[in-house]
Design a binder for these strands. Sequence first.
DNA 1: TCAAATTCTTATCTTTTGTTAACGTTTTGA
DNA 2: TCAAAACGTTAACAAAAGATAAGAATTTGA
Lengths: 202, 202
Amino acid sequence: MDTLKALDIFRQHLEKYVSFNEAEWIVFIQHLHFTALKKKRHFIEPGIVCNDVGFILSGSVRYYNIKDGEEITGYFSFENEFVTSYKSYLTRQPALNYIQALEDTVLVNFNYKSMQQMLANPMLAYKMERFGRLVAEYYLICYEDRMTSFITKTPEERYLDLLSTGRDILQRMPQHYIANFLGITPVSLSRIRRRILVSGPL
Amino acid sequence: MDTLKALDIFRQHLEKYVSFNEAEWIVFIQHLHFTALKKKRHFIEPGIVCNDVGFILSGSVRYYNIKDGEEITGYFSFENEFVTSYKSYLTRQPALNYIQALEDTVLVNFNYKSMQQMLANPMLAYKMERFGRLVAEYYLICYEDRMTSFITKTPEERYLDLLSTGRDILQRMPQHYIANFLGITPVSLSRIRRRILVSGPL
DNA sequence: TCAAATTCTTATCTTTTGTTAACGTTTTGA
DNA sequence: TCAAAACGTTAACAAAAGATAAGAATTTGA
């Protein structure tokens, strides 16, 4: 995929949040850089301050932590979604989690310093504040929904929800990552699947 | 507490996000209104679009859902924190949860329409976008932390975390609400407390 | 291509949680 | 003030989840 086409796709998806005019866009794209992340490579690792916000042009990533030597996968992102370790990026504290490419992944990034420059640039400041607000609000709602499902639902119910709405995750992620994502062990998810299969296959 | 003092406290806490000059502040406060919520009264209920964002001057609230006829408490807010059903407020869809005052609670509110007006008012737009961004980012980080604890920790570990950092919640909330907040039943929390007591009280 | 690693399932056993109910204590509200 | 409601603990049992290990199928990567 060539750079111009990639920028065009990015711009199109940004429309969901803000629209740039030509002059603004020209300044904005000067702050962008592309990254190709080979499968299994890391976007961020614990102990490092996350400097970039990425937008996935192609590929996918998983977010995971290590607990007692075990990897625990907490989240996934796919094409046309943003990727960053929000807490680290926003607070400038070292990240506590890994973000890893699950396939060869191509990203458009902007870094913290660039964003601060744009936020300080009168030409872009307003639009960047708005952009930041709308993106944060979007992900806030995602988290709110997910928290609610952890509070009010059983692992089995969360899996059934995923069956009806989580196509990408189900089709593209190995099952033991999905188990972690649901808050249970892979063995437990296997049993839940069996339970569903024998009781009500539909 | 008189209105002027309340506004002053509110302004002081907003400094965490944005600073208003006098002219801006005068316009801003014209969009504010005060609410006194008697104990057990609701700030929002399911089926209703949440129009307000509140800031708690005194008192506290809990967020809860109803599942199979049972109340499940998912979150709490105390003095000097914002309160709203974010998803409903932002998407203009009916809320799915209750927010209830746990004590007599006094709030400063602004509503959705007011915020839209301020966002459209050149005098305030930039600052309001920034305000919205920083508040959303703040709560995004809270949710990120909480999600991580659900993925990587056991209920017992989450309770121990609360013991070391959750003073307000532990001291001001009944235990069965705290149990829900941790993702377990009240009976289960009672057992966890017993386990901790007999094994290592410290 | 082929050995090694990964993935998923299944089984066994242990631990934890959920459910229901009982009981004493505390709080509430008329 | 006093009956009713709410709260926390405990017990007994059922259901679910965690831990560990074994085995088959698939994927991987050199």
